[in-house]
Design a protein around this nucleic acid. Structure first.
Lengths: 355, 355
DNA sequence: AATTTTTCCGTGTGCGTACACGAAATGAAA
DNA sequence: TTTCATTTCGTGTACGCACACGGAAAAATT
């Protein structure tokens, strides 16, 4: 039944090196006060035996806490997009609280740069040991990242990236690639000749860096390959008013009688689905984003062909986990964690419903 | 920055109850030797303060190990199907080894019931604290599950289920549903009128309970909905000989000139892909299973339209995790963990490549 | 040579829990 | 009351590690 090779402890190391456990500990954490000679000796033995300190005992013995600062948009009001990442963050934090991880959330508004600056400054004032940041405002976020790099505070970037390399890990999804994927799905499901509508239902409050990338990915797919001879038509609709949306869509259909499919670049695809249902245009393929409570029923009723899922909860979870691995477990973390781009349709929906 | 409400320890409880930590410990683990009166007193206080023993300190202090028995098919020889679940199991075991988890693997052959019985008996003889079992032989597995239930040994079922309820958790994927999904994808991508070929490349050694379920799911999709008027044709090919496979496929194509797509019920889809490439039939949609090293290049070259991914590594990981949560962390575990059925295509392949 | 300073290292305690051991309390029987 | 068995409970040690404290040895200063 056994399996564990009786684990080696610092006591074993100490004995083999002919020193005390205190000395071994000093070497391991290089906190000095050890002669070069014994340091080398201890180092050699720890490496030979591939000694790994017991994380449980470490966490228990070390009274000092690790402090995470979480700099993210608030989930209130401005769409529910940031709600799920936050849930993932909370889930991960709950799992690791025993390891002495403390945290504080600094929430800003995506529509107000000043709140970002203000919260970022607050976070830095508190001198955290690590930072998880959604860099909604590039320039300001870059400055924060640089400051952290100076102070040796590891930074995990969340959900959109900035140019410089002052972070240890980026967690996010590739919006361009997801657009490309949507293109593939649209192409695969279309018959020859006809129009494909690309609908961007914009809200001024929304982070449209994504939306743009998705659209570009979609377009790029057809630039490379358009064997079915499809015409792509862009339609941008500002505002949330249902009447206006329906009006625009109706106009598009009357101008283009052979629309084969519609790609909606965000989670508001359900509004288009309802339009299609109302107008009895059931043959039109519809592809959009996110497993929201509005979108799911549309998928089940076949009003939407595919939803592309960003696994928003997973993103938050992975971000916290990366920082935990770095700071507490001292493990290597990948420079980039890309969340899978899931294709969800009626037939596999139920396996993705856990959030 | 703080967050943790200074955690309460058994020492606190002891003080409040006017007893010693030893007594508190006895109450918590109900190992008797405590008068009813003080037991109630301590219980009340622990509940009032919602005391949760520190898992780290528990694991550290407890010398007694938790023993997992893992009863699975061997990965050698009979196809590589069981290799990945085993990797997932190993990954999970590695993460939790600090918690004093010991384990032993009892490997049997899926083609020899006696090896299952033999290994199962061995496992039970060793009196494990928990069992992870792939119930390849239903009747025998049911008996084992019943025996474990008697002995209060929690059982996690792996990858195929049995009827009775003597297990705490089932981890697996729904093969029928994945066939249904394949049907949807095939339907979505096909033009009207023509044939769809269902190819089962059977090997006698393989567990074909799955393969059957996948096929049935696929057929079921079209029983409900066949607006494109597609004719489904089954083709079963025994043996691994490439020549024979090509011969059968060629015959099918000559008999059915308008084949629109091919569904291969297992991971050997790459063989069909190579056939199609050789015969220059690039317009045929091809859907199959599993991200194997042979299949991936075919996906990248667009020879395969979609692969359905069972996340075999994830299954093993989740099974171990469930048992760990139950036995060590004493957390609730869901009765059923269904692994998502991922749709993988050229455009999102890279996010699934981690195994 | 006596002293101070610096470098280096061992010992001891604590983190929160588990559990063995033995002491005290209780109760029953003499 | 004494005696002994039983129940009930407190104390001490260990788990593996981190870190403070202080002391010995070596180096530097007088």
């Amino acid at each position: 039944m056994e399996r564990s090779d009786k684990k080696i402890t610092i006591k074993d190391i100490a004995q083999l090196a002919g020193v005390s456990v205190g000395t071994v500990d000093r070497v391991i954490h290089n906190r000095g006060e050890v002669s070069e000679k014994t340091k080398q000796k201890v180092r050699k033995i720890t490496e030979m035996l591939n000694f790994q300190p017991d994380v449980l005992a470490s966490a228990l013995a070390s009274k000092k806490n690790v402090r995470f600062a979480i700099l993210m948009p608030s989930a209130n009001g401005e769409g529910t997009f940031w709600k799920y990442p936050m849930l993932g963050i909370d889930k991960a934090l709950l799992e690791i609280e025993h390891y002495g991880v403390l945290y504080k959330k600094y929430l800003f508004s995506v529509s107000d740069k000043n709140t970002f600056i203000e919260q970022a400054e607050k976070a830095m004032m508190d001198h955290p040991d690590g930072l998880i940041m959604a860099p909604s405002f590039k320039k300001e976020a870059t400055e924060i990242a640089e400051l952290c790099a100076q102070r040796k505070i590891p930074v995990v970037l969340f959900n959109s990236s900035i140019d410089n390399q002052d972070h240890i890990c980026y967690v996010g999804q590739d919006a361009f690639q997801s657009g490309l994927l949507a293109g593939k799905l649209m192409d695969y499901g279309s018959s020859e000749n006809g129009e494909i509508l690309i609908v961007s239902l914009m809200s001024l409050l929304q982070n449209n860096q994504y939306i743009l990338a998705r659209k570009q990915g979609f377009l790029h797919y057809f630039e490379n390959k358009n064997e079915r001879n499809l015409r792509l038509i862009s339609l941008e609709i500002d505002g949330l008013d249902v009447g206006a949306i329906y009006h625009e869509l109706r106009k598009a259909f009357s101008e283009n009688p052979t629309i084969k499919g519609i790609f909606v670049t965000n989670s508001r695809v359900f509004q288009v689905a309802r339009f299609l249902e109302a107008e009895k245009k059931t043959k039109v393929n519809l592809i959009g984003y996110d497993l929201t409570s509005e979108n799911k029923p549309c998928l089940e009723k076949n009003m939407i062909s595919f939803l592309i899922n960003q696994q928003p909860l997973e993103q938050g979870y992975r971000a916290v986990n990366a920082l935990f691995n770095k700071l507490v477990l001292k493990k290597e973390v990948p420079k980039e964690i890309l969340i899978p781009i899931d294709i969800v349709t009626k037939e596999n929906l139920k396996y993705y419903e856990e959030y």
